[in-house]
């Protein structure tokens, strides 16, 4: 047990990367399956949130903090994309 402690952050980083990838896979299932366009948009939004989280874990796992601004950029683009989608859905209904 004590042997693990020097590497605990690395182990936790790898484990959480695996969990996040599994989460991305689950969200992708919803993205492919639908059934409504709105469900797909929510799945896509969820995937971008998970990507942001993955970048955080990646930064810890590799010790490179230069990747963190990428998370901000992804968040910004995802938000604009979601807003555009929502407006498109409202338009299409009218």
């Amino acid at each position: 047990m004590l042997l693990f402690i020097p590497h605990i952050v690395e182990i936790a980083g790898s484990a959480s990367m695996g969990m996040l990838l599994l989460a991305v896979a689950l969200a992708t299932w919803r993205l492919l399956r639908g059934p409504d366009l709105a469900d797909r948009v929510v799945a896509l939004e969820m995937i971008t949130l998970l990507l942001i989280a993955l970048i955080g874990v990646y930064a810890v796992r590799t010790g490179i903090d230069a990747v963190l601004p990428v998370a901000i950029v992804i968040g910004l683009i995802a938000f604009l994309g979601t807003v555009a989608f929502a407006r498109y859905l409202m338009r299409r209904k009218a």
């Binding site: 936790a12 959480s16 599994l22 989460a23 949130l49 998970l50 989280a53």
Partner: peptide, 14 residues
């Protein structure tokens, strides 16, 4: 703990 807890929540959300 924080990393694992955070990814656990993300997994639950998925």
């Amino acid at each position: 703990f924080l990393l694992l807890g955070g990814s656990a929540f993300a997994l639950v959300a998925a």
